[in-house]
Design a protein around this nucleic acid. Structure first.
Lengths: 229, 229
DNA sequence: TGATGTGAACCCATTCACAGCC
DNA sequence: GGCTGTGAATGGGTTCACATCA
């Protein structure tokens, strides 16, 4: 895995899970023409306490102004940068059934920085058909798709029984994050370090009001280790 | 609040959240005619490690047999007892809209030990109507309903904007648990100690495959403190 | 022998409290 | 004066490792 030019800072799990909360609030503040915010106010709006807010934000860097607070626009930018929302994340969708078609066809993903780099399935009757402007390919092509399009996120849109198998294949293909829409808990091999993210919040940021229960597992930067076949 | 005759043992949050997982596995083992299980096997099936399983189960009591393992039926009983699944928990549903009607009318709640003790709403046009065999009453009657029917669980089935207000009223009325179906995070007053439970898992136990995102807050036994009006 | 039950060590997250800076 | 940034204290959860016992 290529080393991204990340800051050497190590942001705690719990903090990362709260960043989307802060981000949503900041967006609302922007919309309301509020340009400054103190940790106290942010805490109030986010339903946490001020010390936690300051601690969380301090991991990103020293972006506040003592005696004043934080500048909304700047803080927004920094959080989006940390969450990787400032660049595209191509995804590959596994499963061309109802859900897969819906996800691919909706187009919302692409508009929000998650272009659909490919859709795969095992069913021969589905392969070759075009959904959401993308041709469905065989699941065996996963490694090529991932490599050639620099896909970091795999989306599981298959029945529960097949979800684990798909997860394994995604990991082997080299994706570092898995967005699982199957109603079952998946796991990844030992040695592959993953992070669970509250998808509902992520989707809220993106403007979705998705009620599906999905889980997201995101590789922790710097611990990239692929499972052997 | 009356002191329930609970064991003095204090079971950690994290452990309680895993008990439903173990329970589901035990049910499957029973169905498969398996009567003994070791912490190692249980850990494998539950996707956790054996030490954690043993630690978790040790909080319930000394129910294992050294050199052998745990007896499935007995352990099942103990976990169900701990989770309060061995007796009824009357619920009151707040909101007689689509969701409230669905929840009340389905009947599944009642069959699983959660009889609907009442449904309330603020809308005069809804009050007096009968849904799921229960007459809709005014939300102001909440305290009487809770007291007379020993309701411990309130179900929030109102729009997001009203969820917090309803949560407050439920707490004041004396419920100790809140099942929130509104797509928003609710909070309870300081001094009221609550526990969040993964509802998805709870519902799985009950045989539901509910995809709604709901959160459950359950009062921690022994810390019962009602907010003042 | 083999698996439980559990003290102890470790790790992570939260909270406190205050020094530092605008 | 006011608010941030952060060491230190605290507490909970996980894991280790082994005494204990059927």
């Amino acid at each position: 895995m290529p080393m991204a030019g990340r800051p050497q800072r190590r942001i705690p799990e719990a903090t990362v899970s709260r960043l989307p909360v802060y981000l949503r609030i900041l967006h609302e503040l922007s919309a309301a023409e509020t340009h400054q915010i103190s940790s106290e106010q942010l805490a109030e709006l986010g339903g946490v306490n001020a010390a936690k807010v300051r601690k969380d934000l301090s991991y990103l860097g020293t972006y506040g102004v003592r005696g004043v607070g934080y500048e909304v626009r700047f803080l927004t930018y920094q959080i989006e940068r940390e969450l990787g929302l400032n660049h595209d994340w191509p995804v590959v969708i596994v499963g061309a059934g109802n859900l897969g078609q819906a996800l691919s066809g909706y187009g919302g993903f692409g508009q929000e920085g998650f272009p659909v780099a490919g859709v795969v399935d095992v069913d021969p009757s589905k392969i070759g058909s075009v959904i959401g402007g993308v041709r469905v390919r065989h699941i065996d092509e996963l490694p090529q798709i991932v490599a050639s399009r620099s896909v970091a996120i795999g989306v599981i849109a298959v029945p529960a029984l097949e979800a684990q198998e798909v997860a394994d294949r995604l990991v082997r293909a080299g994706v570092t994050s898995i967005l699982n829409f199957a109603p079952v808990v998946i796991s990844v091999p030992r040695g592959v370090n993953v992070r669970k993210v509250d998808l509902a919040l992520e989707l809220q940021i993106l403007g979705y009001h998705e009620q599906s229960r999905a889980t997201m597992m995101r590789a922790i930067p710097g611990s990239g280790e692929s499972a052997s076949a």
